[in-house]
Design a protein around this nucleic acid. Structure first.
Lengths: 160, 160
DNA sequence: CAAGATGGACAACCTCATTAACCATATAGA
DNA sequence: TCTATATGGTTAATGAGGTTGTCCATCTTG
């Protein structure tokens, strides 16, 4: 009965590496004027940019894009609207659709996230080498699905 | 205003890679007689093996090991006991301690998980090369904390 | 032996999901 | 055109997993 369970290392390290990046991102984002941003939000913003129609994205659109129910997507939208990251609108061609688009505040958060991630990436490149880091991302691309927004993952993390 | 947001690729790929492994693990575990296993449980089993005293692990022990409250650990223990993965015991040297140890069913799940992870690892090695995969794990070790069980992460995922 | 630390058990509450049901609006077919 | 069906939005009930706070029983230590 093996007790060392070495085979768990690959998934564990992938998870820890993700957590390290996300935790440091949100610490820094909080310092830069976005203390309310939660880990999921950056992905949500990107999904909202891509998933909607010409007049914006609905809760149902977002739910499909993220792989969660429209009700869950609706609650996320409510919170992000309350935080000033989303602005409501409507679709003149379909009176049912209640659409949302990103506010400048959301674009600010996205741009800052981008810069912080790049900074963290540079730190990692300093530790393991630029070539090795590039190889890692390239390899990860080969073993992960290309459709990056169907995360299909409810209840990510609750930053306390 | 950049709209491609390429800087998100590293964290996203790490997350997707982890999800791919975990999802395939649990699909296969379900086929092999463990349909109730949840993503967190494998980590919990390992923590229970390591965190306790000679007579087993208590909820308080487990809470400390996982970085959650003793109450949260207690609820997890209750569920795992209900699923037949944990067996209660007691510590003759301390009447307060209500201890738990893994059942053979839990060891079976751990061994199967180990084998499934190894199989997935081999698949990845076939795609990206054994040397590249080894380099990836080595590099991830360099950028992640060494203390693998203090995940400090409430509410991981609810596989539906 | 008294005082404090620790383990366990409850209770109340939070967050983020889920399903189910219902109503309003679009759309397609007879 | 009218009806059937699909879709969007909302609300409600539920579940998993977490949190504090409180209380009591049992060590452990001065």
């Amino acid at each position: 009965m093996s007790s060392d369970l070495q085979g768990f290392e690959l998934p564990l390290r992938l998870l820890l590496a993700f957590r390290v990046l996300i935790d440091e991102l949100h610490e820094e984002l909080a310092r830069q004027g976005h203390p309310q941003m939660r880990p999921m939000h950056g992905f949500v913003f990107q999904a909202i940019m891509r998933a909607g129609g010409p007049y914006g994205t609905t809760a149902a659109d977002l739910g499909r894009a993220l792989g969660v129910s429209k009700q869950a997507a609706g609650k996320t939208i409510d919170m992000l609207e309350g935080l000033g990251y989303l602005r409501p609108g409507h679709d003149p061609s379909d009176a049912r659709r209640k659409t949302y688009t990103l506010t400048p505040h959301a674009y600010d958060a996205l741009e800052r996230s981008e810069r912080i991630f790049e900074h963290l990436r540079d730190q990692w490149a300093g530790v393991i080498g630029e070539d090795r880091l590039r190889a890692m991302v390239e390899d990860l691309r080969k073993v992960t699905p290309p459709d990056v927004f169907r995360l299909d993952t409810p209840q990510w993390f609750n930053a306390p």
